[in-house]
């Protein structure tokens, strides 16, 4: 009498697992062609940085995809995670370990995840986190141009996000599709990068290096006279406030992959 329903449930669970894992593996990536750009910060004397070709996820990782990952790697679930790798607010908005609850959409970006776990997630997909240069390189494109950073309306769009509350609850893919075919680089959530803390992290680095001074206090206001810089300041400033085990409600991630 109990055997049939049990079998059914198992089957159901199994099929659910299969579909979700298919979904997870199904994350579309697009090719970002090799190029060069001048980052706003992080280089001395504004030198061009070369970015090798790579693949990047079209969308940030979603709640549904993240659940599939947790089921395979339960040691990263909310109750099992080691304090070293994620602080208490890790997935705090979820209902339980393997349930994101009714208040969160399956296709909303997963947030409140630490850098350690984001990195692990990407590795489990045979991918990695994008570097800050890679991320910034992709993010400077609007719908039509590889580098739209000098376009006023583009910067207004980026800046306007800071004034929109609770965008983290929106589904992925709701913002514009950029030149490369990538969505949600702006207007949804912040995203982890592999080397998020490479500049402006400690009080020391702020004071000791001239380049990093650009990001702090007085010198920031001297240099930041245009919108382009203002939009970028926000990202660099945000990254600077993070530590690898931190999780915040507005911070998600996507993965990248080297070209074979």
């Amino acid at each position: 009498m109990f055997a049939i329903p049990k079998a059914k449930i198992i089957l159901l669970l199994f099929s659910l697992l299969v579909t979700t894992s298919i979904l997870a593996q199904d994350t579309k990536m697009v090719l970002i062609k090799r190029g060069a750009y001048v980052p706003l910060y992080g280089t001395t004397d504004k030198k061009t940085v070369e970015v090798q070709g790579f693949n990047v996820d079209v969308y940030p990782v979603t709640n549904a995809q993240f659940i599939a990952f947790l089921k395979k790697n339960p040691e990263y679930s909310r109750s099992k995670i080691k304090g070293l790798f994620a602080e208490k607010s890790y997935l705090a908005h979820w209902e339980s370990d393997f349930n994101y609850g009714k208040n969160n959409l399956s296709n909303a970006p997963v947030t409140n995840v630490s850098w350690f776990v984001a990195k692990k997630y990407c590795e489990c997909q045979g991918k990695r986190l994008p570097t800050m240069d890679e991320w910034e390189y992709v993010a400077m494109a609007d719908e039509k141009r590889i580098d739209a950073r000098i376009k006023e309306s583009f910067n207004h769009y980026i800046l306007s996000w800071y004034e929109k509350p609770k965008t983290y609850a929106n589904p992925v893919g709701g913002t514009f599709k950029n030149y490369w075919g990538v969505y949600d680089m702006h207007g949804l959530v912040w995203e982890w990068t592999s080397d998020f803390n490479s500049i402006f992290l400690s009080g020391e680095s702020r004071k000791d290096k001239d380049t990093d001074k650009n990001l702090f206090c007085g010198s920031a206001s001297i240099n930041a006279t245009d919108l382009m810089n203002y939009a970028a300041f926000m990202r660099y400033g945000f990254r600077a406030s993070l530590k690898a085990k931190y999780t915040t409600r507005n911070l998600g991630f996507r993965c990248a992959k080297d070209l074979k």
């Binding site: 009080g203 702020r206 915040t248 911070l251």
Partner: peptide
Amino acid sequence: GPGGGATSSLVAPGH
């Protein structure tokens, strides 16, 4: 003190 406290107080959301 340095930064009037600013150098010691940069705080991320949720922290």
